[in-house]
Amino acid sequence: MTTVAVLVETRSGEVTQPTFEALTLARSLGTPVAVWLGEAPEAPEVARLGLYGAAEVRVVAVGDEARLPAVAAAALGAATSDAEVMLMVSTFVNKEIATRLALATGAGVVVDAAGAELVDGRVETMQTVFAATWNVRTRIEADRAIVGIRPNTTQAIAGEAPGAATLVEVAADLRQARETVVVVEPVSAPEGVPLAEAPVVVSGGRGTGGDYTLVRELADVLGGAVGASRDATDEGWISHEHMVGQTGTTVTPALYVACGISGAVHHRGGMQASGTIVAVNIDPDAPIFEIADFGVVGDLGDVLPQAIARIRERRAG
């Protein structure tokens, strides 16, 4: 049976949803083992990893130096020498870790994958490219495969016969990296689900004029996260962490609502693979309408309050 290692992501000490998605995918490829970089996890987190199919939780005790891709890759390598397949969440940092691990092990790498399966003993992955206008299937020909999985592309499902995961401590010989992390200034996470993991994203662009009240209210009603276009973050209306686009966060929620966003290709590249796309824009020629399942040509100040009121009314009724 293929050993499939999954790199655990945590936020405030808790395992993130995309990690459970990766574990779910790992079960379809072989026997999952979770790899935890940092101080040993608390028992409830180990139990949750077991629930999603991790037979083992391998812990490599590393500190802040693991923020450096060189250190993280060495630690991960030490814990996964027996793994034919390595899954991780496709983030900017993990892409760097994957690259280093691949150069150390000869593995083939695909990042930003929307799924993976074993075909004739090799891993094949599915991705969307060119602003999600093309589907691509890639075969990893190397004996070892590393796959970066996009959040929200696999549904996390607990294992049918979950067992207790065994905690295994792994010693790693971590050489001094060239780089030094001088300062780490934590970013206070916005409340609620992070953008990349949210099932619903409501984004505001230039058309908001900088006022996010209605966008936030709609996001609240729909249980979603707030996103923004590059225009809006450049104006300083909302912080960079909210930017949806090719150089910001790529999202694939079940529902994406674009408010006052024209839909430049940079933005579309970060959201075009979403399930249902809704657009509200005053400009009937805005390119966002070309990809919207439901488009409204109208003023945000009229359309959004009415939509919010209607949803509340129907729910109350």
Partner: peptide, 16 residues
């Protein structure tokens, strides 16, 4: 089956 409507007063309701 994409739909685009122009707001004539009830597009918010249609969207909801």
């Amino acid at each position: 089956n994409r739909v685009t409507v122009t707001d004539t007063g009830d597009a918010g309701t249609q969207l909801a």
